[in-house]
C-alpha cells in the first residue's frame, strides 16, 4: 500500500489502472475532467488503451467492444453524459459483459450545473436504460473509499458479469485526501473469460449478443439475469453504521451526504442526542435487511439526500412502516451544512 494525497478523480483513475484496466474510453465533461486527463497521461504509459471518443454513445459502445474482447474496460462521465450512455449500458447488461462506469453526478435535470448532486439515484439503481436490468452501484463518501470501491467494482463486475457503477459527485471527485492506493493486481488473478470474442481457434464460435427474437429464448436470458441479481442481492449489500447501537434517530445518507451526515452525528452526540448514521455503500443491491433491523428499534429514520427523495423510496421499502421516515433534501447543487441538517434532526430527536 502506498499513501498519497490525491484528488478523488485521480485516485479513481489510478485505482482503476492498478486494477488491471486495459481500455478506457471517454468523452470530456465536468466535473470528472481530472479523471480523463489522468487516464490520458498514465494509461498508455502502463500498457493500456486511452481513447477519447466522438460522443458518450460511442465511448460506451467502445467499452462494449473491449469488454466483449475480454479485457477490463471502463468509461467515466457525469449525469448528462451518463444519460447518453444508457443505450449501451442496457446492451452491456443483457450481453453479460463486465465493465466499470463512473458517474460523477452533477445538478440536473437537463444541462443543470456542475455542483454536487444526487439526482441520478433512480437512473443508477433502477435500470436507467430500457429493459429489466441492474447495475452494481457503489457510492463512496471519501477519496480513499473511492479508490477502494473501484477495485471492488472491477472484481464484482467480473465475478457476476454485471456492469458496475461508481456513483459519486464533484465533491468527491475534486477534493484531495490521503489515499491508500491498492496494490497493482496480479494479471493472473483476473478471472478468465472463456466467453470473450478472441477468435474461434480450438473452440466453437463465441457470440456476444443481447438479442433473441423468440419470446421463450428472451425470457430465458432474462431469467438468467434475474437469477444473478438475486445472488448479488444475497451476497453483496454493503453499508456502514455509525453510532447506531443506541440511536433513537437514524440518518440515512450516502456519498457526499453520507460524509456530511457523519459530522451531524458527531455534533448531535455532543449535544447528547442519540443519533446514528446508516450509510449504504452499495446502492444496488440496497441494504434493505440491516436497515429494516434498525427500524425495529429506532424511533425515526431520517433520509437526507441531494435530491427530491430518490433513495428515500428504498428507505421506505426497507422500513415498511416500522418507524416514521421523514425526508430532507436539497436540490440544484446546493449542499446543506451539517448545522442545517442538525436543525432537521432536532425536529425529530431529543
Amino acid at each position: 500500500m502506498s499513501r498519497v494525497l490525491m484528488r478523488g478523480n485521480e485516485a479513481i483513475a489510478e485505482a482503476a489502472i492498478r486494477s488491471g484496466l486495459k481500455c478506457y474510453f471517454c468523452y470530456p465533461i465536468t466535473p470528472q475532467g481530472e479523471l480523463v486527463e489522468y487516464m490520458a497521461r498514465e494509461l498508455p504509459k502502463r500498457g493500456g488503451v486511452f481513447l477519447q471518443a466522438e460522443s458518450e454513445v460511442a465511448a460506451i459502445n467502445m467499452v462494449y467492444g473491449a469488454a466483449a474482447a475480454g479485457v477490463r474496460a471502463m468509461t467515466s462521465s457525469s449525469s448528462p453524459g451518463i444519460s447518453l450512455k444508457q443505450e449501451g449500458i442496457s446492451y452491456i447488461a443483457m450481453a453479460r459483459l463486465p465493465c466499470v462506469i463512473v458517474n460523477m453526478m452533477r445538478g440536473g435535470p437537463g444541462l443543470g450545473n456542475i455542483a454536487p448532486a444526487q439526482g441520478d439515484y433512480f437512473q443508477a439503481t433502477k435500470g436507467g436504460g430500457h429493459g429489466d436490468y441492474r447495475l452494481i452501484v457503489l457510492a463512496p463518501s471519501t477519496v480513499p473509499e473511492a479508490a477502494e470501491l473501484v477495485r471492488l467494482a472491477f472484481d464484482l463486475s467480473d465475478k457476476y458479469r454485471v456492469p458496475a457503477m461508481i456513483l459519486a459527485d464533484g465533491m468527491i471527485g475534486q477534493m484531495m485526501e490521503p489515499v491508500e492506493l491498492p496494490e497493482p493486481v496480479d494479471p493472473g488473478k483476473i478471472p478468465p473469460r472463456p466467453w470473450a470474442v478472441t477468435g474461434a481457434r480450438g473452440r466453437g464460435k463465441n457470440v456476444i449478443s443481447s438479442f433473441d427474437l423468440e419470446p421463450e429464448g428472451l425470457r430465458e436470458m432474462n431469467l438468467a439475469l434475474q437469477a444473478i441479481y438475486r445472488e448479488i442481492e444475497r451476497n453483496e449489500p454493503r453499508w456502514e453504521e455509525v453510532e447506531t447501537r443506541d440511536a433513537d434517530l437514524i440518518v440515512v445518507a450516502y456519498g457526499t451526504m453520507g460524509r456530511i451526515a457523519r459530522s451531524v452525528v458527531h455534533m448531535a452526540r455532543k449535544e447528547k442526542l442519540r443519533v446514528g448514521l446508516f450509510r449504504p455503500i452499495t446502492l444496488w443491491p440496497f441494504p434493505y435487511e440491516p436497515l429494516r433491523e434498525l427500524a425495529e428499534r429506532a424511533e425515526v429514520i431520517l433520509t437526507v439526500e441531494l435530491s427530491a427523495g430518490q433513495m428515500w423510496e428504498d428507505v421506505r421499502l426497507a422500513v415498511e412502516g416500522r418507524a416514521p421516515t421523514p425526508f430532507f433534501g436539497e436540490l440544484g447543487g446546493v449542499v446543506p451544512s451539517p448545522k442545517r441538517i442538525l436543525e432537521e434532526v432536532k425536529k425529530y430527536a431529543g
Binding site: A53, V57, A58, A59, N61, M62, Y64, G65, A68, E87, G88, Y91, A95, V197, T198, G199, A200, K205, N206, V207, I208, S209, S210, F211
Partner: peptide, 14 residues
C-alpha cells in the same frame, strides 16, 4: 467466426 451484436448504428464504435 466470433461475433458481437451491436446496437443500431454503433458497429464502428464496438
Amino acid at each position: 467466426c466470433d461475433f458481437v451484436q451491436a446496437a443500431h448504428g454503433r458497429a464502428c464504435a464496438v
